[in-house]
C-alpha cells in the first residue's frame, strides 16, 4: 500500500472461483503509478479550486478549444450496474449488497443465513475483500457456491467486478445472490452494483452514532441490521438511539435486531429475504 495516495502497487482485481479453484485477473486498464510533486494548488474565488503544474501554466496564454461534456462521472459504473440489474431480473435473481465496517459480522450473518435457509432457498455468494480467500472458504464450508473477488488496493466493489464474478459464479434462476462488499462504510455507498437492495450491518460493539457519521451509506441502504445483540448486556450501545439516528438519515429504512451467533431475531431478516425473493419472481411474470 502506498502511503502517499492510498493506492496499492498491486492495483489488480482478481476473481477466484472456489468451485473450480481457477483464478483470473480482471483487466481494467489500470493506472500508472508515479507521483509527481510539481503540481500545486491555490484557492481562488469562493468554491473554485484550481491546481496545475508549472509547465502547463505557461501555456495558458494560448487560446484552447473549450468542449462542453456535461457527463456524469460514474455513468459507466451506473450503466454496467443497470446491465447487471437487468440480468438479475431476467433470471429472477434477488441480488443484495451487504455493506458495513470491517468486523461487524457480514460474513457470520451470511454463513448463518446459508445454514438456516439452504434447504429452502438457493443461495450464492460473491465475496469482496482486498486480499485473501478466507471469507470465501467460510462460505463454502457453510454450503453455498461462492466466488471471491480480491480488489487489491480497491476499497469497494464496482459493477464490472460483480459482472465478472457472476459470470464465474453462474447463480441459478430464482436464486438469492448475497454480495458481500469490502468492509468500508464510505466508498461502497457511491458504487451501484445492480443490486435490488443495500443491507447495512451495524454491530453493537460499534458506536450507535454511525448512521450520523456515515450518512451516505445509511441513506443508500434499504435495511439496517443491528448485529451481535447477544453482547448488549456487556456494552453501552443504545439500540433505541441507533435506530433513531438511522431513521433520521433515512426515514424509509427498515431495521432488524439480530445475533448471527445465537440466531436471535434472524427470522425477521429471513422473512425479508423470502418476501423480496418472491417479489422478484412475481415481477418477472408481468
Amino acid at each position: 500500500m502506498c502511503a502517499t495516495c492510498g493506492c496499492g502497487k498491486d492495483a489488480t482485481t482478481t476473481v477466484l472461483n472456489l468451485q473450480t479453484g481457477e483464478q483470473t485477473v480482471l483487466s481494467r486498464g489500470g493506472h500508472h503509478h508515479h507521483h509527481h510533486h510539481h503540481a500545486h494548488e491555490h484557492v481562488h474565488a469562493a468554491g473554485t479550486r484550481h491546481s496545475h503544474s508549472h509547465a502547463e501554466s505557461r501555456a495558458h496564454a494560448d487560446a484552447g478549444t473549450m468542449v462542453d461534456l456535461e457527463a456524469r462521472i460514474l455513468a459507466k459504473n451506473d450503466a454496467l450496474a443497470e446491465r447487471n440489474r437487468a440480468w438479475f431480473a431476467g433470471r429472477e435473481i434477488l441480488a443484495v449488497n451487504l455493506v458495513s465496517a470491517p468486523g461487524s459480522g457480514k460474513t457470520a450473518l451470511i454463513e448463518r443465513s446459508i445454514r438456516d435457509l439452504k434447504e429452502e432457498l438457493s443461495l450464492a455468494v460473491l465475496e469482496g475483500d482486498q486480499a485473501t480467500a478466507n471469507d470465501a472458504e467460510r462460505i463454502r464450508a457453510a454450503g453455498a457456491p461462492v466466488v471471491q473477488i480480491n480488489t487489491g488496493a480497491g476499497c469497494h466493489l464496482e459493477a464490472d467486478m460483480v459482472a465478472r464474478g457472476v459470470s464465474e459464479l453462474k447463480p441459478k434462476v430464482g436464486s438469492v445472490l448475497l454480495i458481500e462488499n469490502v468492509g468500508n462504510l464510505v466508498c461502497p455507498a457511491l458504487f451501484d452494483l445492480g443490486e435490488r437492495a443495500k443491507i447495512a450491518i451495524l454491530s453493537v460493539t460499534e458506536g450507535e452514532d454511525k448512521p450520523l457519521k456515515y450518512p451516505h451509506m445509511f441513506r443508500a441502504a434499504d435495511v439496517v441490521i443491528l448485529n451481535k445483540i447477544d453482547l448488549l448486556p456487556h456494552v453501552d450501545f443504545d439500540v433505541a438511539r441507533a435506530i433513531e439516528y438511522a431513521l433520521k438519515v433515512n426515514p424509509e429504512i427498515t431495521t432488524y435486531q439480530v445475533s448471527a451467533r445465537t440466531g436471535e431475531g434472524l427470522d425477521a431478516w429471513y422473512d425479508w429475504l423470502r418476501r423480496e425473493a418472491a417479489a422478484v419472481r412475481e415481477a418477472a411474470l408481468i
Partner: peptide, 25 residues
C-alpha cells in the same frame, strides 16, 4: 480535496497529464 489529490496520479501517462483541474463545488 481528495479528487484534486488523486487527479495527478490518475492522469499520469494520459492525454490529461499536466492538465489544470478546476472544481466547482
Amino acid at each position: 480535496d481528495a479528487i484534486a489529490f488523486s487527479f495527478d496520479i490518475a492522469t499520469q501517462g494520459t492525454v490529461l497529464e499536466g492538465a489544470a483541474l478546476e472544481i466547482k463545488e
